[in-house]
Nucleic acid binder design. Structure first.
Lengths: 105, 105
DNA sequence: TTGACATGTGACTGTTTAGTCACCTATTAT
DNA sequence: ATAATAGGTGACTAAACAGTCACATGTCAA
């Protein structure tokens, strides 16, 4: 798995949106994902290809359809690069606090 | 904290290297960080500004020096976006396994 | 106060990247 | 068979970005 590909893949808002959709529910086809976006099929296809190349999305063919699944492992590896086990608890608590405060207002 | 700024900031290898250095040891100055890189001071300064704008680096002035510190909270928020508490344990184990296998050769 | 040091700004250039289009292949249903 | 469906390729354009440079401000030591 290539570091650089993962980070570059995550740098685009459309690709992050695709990951959000797959996180919500796995196994979607290109056509289904395309229908939610203000973009041509070719644009979405390119983005999915980038995500797949980065290992953030894995696919399975089923007839003429291609099903897409989220692979969260590269995300965890990013986390582990800058947050070691000793500080994880503290940082996690801070992040939870931040989310709670933002959700509240 | 702006999502997009964080992801774009992480998309560049030089900026990730700077985060690595700060993860190793906090409180470095621009000049110190510059000396390790094959790049002019201006390039490094621009990168640090991007990291600061994303909230990944926080700074403190001390006389004519500017000290840089790593803030890992945005990284944790990325993690939490696609890895919920229920799957965290499993994904974490997979990531550890991957690291172990790669370190072994 | 003079010179060295540490950081900062705005403009410029070459490269990369997002998004589209014309055109193509493979699979399914009738 | 044939028409509709699902996915795929290579070339193109406009916008974004990395990196550099001339020039400038504020701080420290002798």
């Amino acid at each position: 798995m290539d570091d650089d590909r993962v980070f570059r893949a995550l740098a685009d808002p459309t690709r992050r949106h695709l990951l959000d959709r797959l996180h919500e529910r796995d196994g979607r086809t290109l056509t289904e994902l395309e229908s939610e976006l203000e973009m041509t099929r070719f644009g979405v296809m390119k983005h999915l290809k980038v995500l797949e190349g980065a290992g953030l999305v894995v696919t399975r063919r089923s007839g003429r359809e291609k099903l897409h699944f989220l692979n969260p492992v590269p995300i965890r590896l990013i986390h582990d690069r800058w947050i070691d086990k000793y500080t994880e608890r503290r940082v996690s608590a801070l992040a939870d606090l931040k989310t709670t405060l933002e959700d509240a207002g």
